[in-house]
Amino acid sequence: MINTYIEMVPALLNGAKITIEVLVLSLIFTYIIAFIAGLGKLSKFRAIRVVCTIYIEIFRGTSLLVQLFWIYFVLPFFGIEFSALTAGVIAMSLCYGAYASEVVRGAILSIPKGQTEAAIALNMTPFQRMMKIIIPQAFKIMLPGFGNLSIELMKGTSLVSLITLGDLTYQSLTLRNTNVAHTTEIFVALLVIYFIIALPLIVLARWLERRASLGRV
């Protein structure tokens, strides 16, 4: 009995490792994409705005699962092939990047016009205005939104199991196939491990929210 459990541990840990890998990589690319698309949608060039809008609407308007399937199963027919991990990270980043770009855009738009005007009056360049005046203020407004999206993203990672990636969910399902009698224990373990992975994100998000509501950050 104990032995069965001990035999399960490496599989679950392996799965957890992959889940964390997908999570961290996706978080990084999500926020890079968020800034590119969020700023792009505010560009003074119409073409850039249009491209960003199309991207954002497509990825917010379709399900993450369908996006995963497209990138992993469909694109190879067009000669574009990714490993399951790469496909998972790309799909997650593009999907959550679309949501996060709206957080970026909203925060930037919420900075009073007077800030930009004061920066113009001091003869700062458009780039300096953005980097020194607008983004430092907007970033604080973005943080609570980023915290919540990061938790959402964390939960979304379980979908990568459906493109054959051996993440935590995938490993649990595999273990269960050979140990049906232990279904409950396996899924208790799954729940606990996911929660442990999510915990730092949850704490961080709460903390950011509290600071934002105190108006300090």
Binding site: E117, A118, I133, Q137
Partner: peptide
Amino acid sequence: RGQIGMVFQQFNLFPH
């Protein structure tokens, strides 16, 4: 613009 400066009704200091 380098030759012009402005003081606004609402101050518009950089709060950060």
